[in-house]
């Protein structure tokens, strides 16, 4: 069940270039949150900016909700200036998350796509489920320091055994994350039950294509401009492979790649 509440901001710390980790006190939402789901967040109560912003859920810690975000425009800039103690109107958890029941899934994150993928990895770890993970970045500097205590910027890549790739070669494989992913899918070995991906649209398209080529199920997390988050405004239309449109907020944000018309998106 989704619900709306005024969530108290507990911390809002920079963890990378224009990247912030926001912690909100929202036990009722945190209790229900699943990886791949999102919340709508009003960055200020006034009429400017008017609309709430959708944010992937990055994790939960007890009753706390973690949001990892990059400053992109007016709304996220204002959010980055919000201080502990303020209350932000928040509703969720919303949408369809990842199906974590696939056998030996492969996680693929690109850039800020790490936000929901880290949460997925955490839940898989908790279950003791085997999985593999890939993380693609533009450059090493974009690595997110998840663990503010240890300050470990390379946390995902090293401690969790993630395979890294960077476009400038500063960390991991020199190139796109889809290159090591292709190598992995080409191997014989144990076949992944599904690939779970979140990242920039070109990456998602490439991952969807790769999975189709190797006959592996693929779940992609998509985004679109969105006003309400609850299925009413019909703003977040994603072209459907079957014709017409799917709502990123209801039928998504995580959709089977085969349901999406990647040529029209």
């Amino acid at each position: 069940m989704s619900l709306s509440l005024k969530a108290k901001l507990l911390s809002n710390e920079p963890v990378g270039p224009e990247i912030f980790l926001l912690t909100l006190e929202a036990p009722a939402i945190a209790a229900e949150a699943r990886p791949g789901q999102f919340v709508m967040l009003r960055v200020c109560p006034g009429p400017e900016p008017l609309l709430a912003r959708p944010f992937s859920i990055h994790g939960v810690e007890g009753g706390k909700l973690l949001i990892l975000y990059q400053v992109k425009g007016k709304g996220t800039r204002l959010l980055s200036q919000a201080r502990p103690g303020v209350e932000l109107l928040t509703w969720g958890p919303l949408g369809r998350g990842f199906d974590l029941d696939a056998k030996r899934p492969v996680l693929v994150a690109g850039g800020m796509g790490i936000a929901p993928m880290a949460f997925a990895a955490e839940r898989l770890e908790e279950r003791g489920a085997a999985f593999e993970a890939f993380y693609g970045l533009a450059a090493k500097e974009a690595l997110v320091a998840w663990d503010s205590v240890s300050g470990e910027g390379a946390f995902y890549l090293e401690s969790w055994g993630w395979t890294g790739a960077s476009e400038d070669g500063s960390v991991g494989h020199h190139g796109l994350v889809t290159e090591p992913l292709r190598e992995r899918l080409k191997q014989g070995g144990e076949r992944p039950g599904a690939v779970l991906a979140c990242g920039p649209l070109p990456m998602l398209k490439a991952v969807a294509l790769l999975c189709a080529e190797f006959g592996v199920a693929c779940q992609t997390s998509l985004e679109a401009p969105m006003a309400c988050g609850v299925g009413a405004c019909l703003g977040c239309a994603i072209p459907s492979a079957g014709g017409g449109y799917l709502r990123a907020c209801q039928e998504g944000p995580v959709m089977e790649a085969s349901l999406v018309d990647w040529k029209k998106i």
Binding site: E48, P49, L50, L51, A224, P225, M226, A227, C233, L234, G235, C236, A237, I238, P239, G243, G244, Y245, K264
Partner: peptide
């Protein structure tokens, strides 16, 4: 089915 996206945009 409705119009192709983008369908909404925030203004002042």
């Amino acid at each position: 089915a409705g119009n192709p996206p983008p369908r909404i945009v925030e203004t002042a």
